[in-house]
Design a protein around this nucleic acid. Structure first.
Length: 618
DNA sequence: TTAGGGTTAG
């Protein structure tokens, strides 16, 4: 951890502070005011909530100097705690730690105030820890209030070794029996990579746990993607009689969202109603996100319309939800409604909007809003925004323009952008360009499996069969492991997970018979398997067999066997749905007269009567 | 005169 880099910045702000003071006139009346009254006047300045921005704070600073209170501890600490934006906090601390400051005034409360200010701001966790070190350097003792701040900062940085050393200090000073400190320790460990076992250990050793302790642990499980276990923890929490609150419910909903478990999500919603958990904005946002990502975007929209108070997250969740379901027009008009309502869009809202334009082929709208993002809203585009634009141009078939766009981008394209370009080159016949980009990408990312799949597809299209065969050998030689595709389906409050060629289900014989039957019906209806999707070096018949064992097809067969005719089927795939499964699912929706909703890694596909809502662009 | 867990995208 590098803390030394912070000093020069502080010194620079000190110069700014001095310049501001010397240029301002000195009022003789201030000098005659009694010290006590000056202090009161100064503290009153901080009651004004508009004073927490940098320019306002600088103005306040001038006043402080005028009143001769630059070394008053009350004023100093109030000064630091008022700040809420990073520049302002830096400014305040540069003032407090200026070379002429009276170091005898430094106490635990003063440091706690500064550490808290930095720990609460997302980009300044390092500075919180830096000032913790400064505090120790000055020989000022940390108390039980210091550690929740410091541990929180460490959680944000996700550095396990640092957290362990703080844990050591906590034990040494005897604060490890304090409930707040214990809960923050669970949170810290559960946020650090590789720390979940430690979090569990602290949690298990706690004499008493409350909803905060459970939420800290459940949150860790959710962050790791251990959603099923997170739900399991929630059930256990109920069993031991700890009442969940709105934050616990946000986390539980987040786990449902990850699993795509709509029925479970609905149950959680009714639980919230039944238990009268306070439905604040954040909980409503989590509900909206859950419904949108579990396939019921209309319900998400309804909840959104009924909200009395909305934040940018509410708008973004529902806009992103519509985009994901291919309802780009509605997403764009909701975005425009948001601006009309006076809510300023942020960078995330623009990602939702641009991805809506991309998924629905709204190229002109996309260009217009991308332009307004930089010019009107002064948001600097990140690689994700450029990525959306490239994706949008590629889907619309403007491959040449997309290539030009990438060349002109002020930032280096990341592998995601390059893969988008390569897929477009493959789809629109720019094979040579696609091959070159892929080779370059493989040099940068030699262990990324999908780069080889892309190259293999390009060679197949170029009819370079020998080169295509070689790719498999290269992959084997490098010992690359493929992320196994898996599909989940929810049935009677249980979640079933399938992987390719799965035989772990009790029903597996019937499932494979059903897959066979589906295959016969599909062929009769004119479906031809897309065997070029299969990377393995095997003959055509075996390839067909490999496709039939894809996890999506197994899950659909399972659903056809276990649900009444005519009921919709909802499945969740961990990767992008493959070409062949997409084509097959269209046929299945018609032949078996089922609406099939597929959530893949990127978006939703609604299959109905032989068609998909994505109009074959995904 | 200070304290703990949460939501959008990638």
């Amino acid at each position: 951890m590098q803390f030394s880099a912070i000093r020069p910045k502080l010194l620079r702000t000190i110069n700014v502070a001095t310049a501001t003071t010397s240029s301002s006139p000195h009022h003789p009346s201030s000098a005659t005011t009694s010290k006590r009254a000056a202090e009161q006047r100064c503290l009153a300045l901080f009651q004004d909530h508009t004073c927490n921005t940098f320019p306002k704070l600088a103005q306040t600073h001038t006043h402080i100097l005028k009143l001769g209170l630059h070394n008053n501890p009350l004023v100093l600490t109030k000064f630091a705690s008022t700040s809420s934006d990073l520049d302002a906090i830096d400014y305040a601390s540069s003032f407090i730690f200026s070379p002429d400051a009276d170091t005898r005034l430094y106490d635990t409360f003063l440091f706690n105030t500064i550490i808290r200010a930095y720990a609460q701001t997302s980009q300044s966790k390092e500075r919180a820890l830096y000032f913790y070190n400064v505090m120790l350097d000055y020989g000022v003792w940390a108390n039980k209030f210091t550690y929740p701040f410091v541990l929180k900062a460490c959680a944000g940085l996700r550095v396990l070794s640092l957290g362990q050393s703080l844990h050591g200090s906590v034990v040494k000073l005897g604060f490890d029996d304090d409930a707040h400190v214990q809960n923050t320790m669970v949170h810290m460990y559960s946020s650090c990579s590789g720390g979940i076992e430690f979090a569990r250990k602290v949690f298990d050793g706690m004499p008493k746990s409350d909803s905060v302790s459970w939420s800290a642990l459940i949150g860790g499980y959710v962050r790791l993607g251990w959603s099923t276990d997170a739900i399991g923890l929630f059930r256990k929490m109920q069993m031991v009689g700890v009442r969940p609150d709105e934050i616990t419910m946000v986390l539980v909903l987040s786990a449902c969202t990850d699993l795509g478990a709509l029925e479970l999500g609905k149950w959680v919603e009714s639980y919230i109603e039944k238990e009268r958990v306070q439905k604040n904005v954040e909980l409503c946002n989590a509900l909206i996100d859950m419904f949108a990502k579990c396939g019921d975007v209309d319900k998400a929209l309804k909840l959104f319309r009924n909200m009395s108070e909305r934040t940018i997250v509410s708008w973004t969740s529902v806009i992103g939800g519509l985009a994901m379901h291919g309802r780009g027009f509605e997403a764009v008009s909701l975005f425009e409604e948001m601006i009309g309502a006076g809510v300023a869009p942020d960078d995330v809202a623009f990602i939702g909007l641009l991805s809506a334009c991309s998924h629905s082929g709204l190229v002109e709208k996309g260009r217009k809003h991308f332009d307004s993002m930089t010019k009107e809203f002064k948001i600097v585009p990140r690689i994700e925004h450029y990525g959306c634009m490239v994706d949008m141009l590629c889907r619309a078939g403007h491959v040449k323009e997309a290539l030009e766009f990438v060349k002109k981008m002020p930032i280096k394209p990341n592998p995601i952008v390059l893969r988008t370009l390569i897929s477009a080159c493959h789809a629109h016949g720019e094979l040579k360009i696609g091959e070159n980009i892929t080779k370059q990408l493989i040099r940068n990312e030699p262990m990324h499996e999908s780069n080889y799949v892309l190259l293999s597809n390009i060679y197949a299209k170029m009819s370079h069969w020998d080169k295509k065969t070689k790719i498999r050998e290269v992959m084997d030689k490098k010992g690359m492991t493929k992320t196994p595709g898996s599909t989940m389906i929810e049935l009677d409050n249980e979640i079933y997970e399938f992987v390719a060629g799965d035989k772990s289900q009790r029903q597996y014989k019937e499932i494979y018979e059903m897959v066979e039957e589906m295959g016969r019906e599909l062929k009769g209806a004119g479906y031809a398997p897309t065997t070029s999707e299969v990377l393995l070096d095997i003959d055509e018949e075996d390839k067909e067999d490999a496709l039939n064992r894809h996890s999506e097809k197994l899950a659909i067969a399972f659903a056809l066997l276990n649900t009444p005719p005519g009921t919709p089927i909802r499945i969740v795939k961990n990767l992008r749905v493959c070409n062949d499964c997409h084509a097959a699912t269209k046929f299945i929706s018609r032949i078996y007269n089922r609406e099939i909703v597929v959530r893949d890694r990127n978006r939703f596909h609604h299959f109905r009567e032989g068609f998909c809502s994505c109009k074959d662009f995904w």
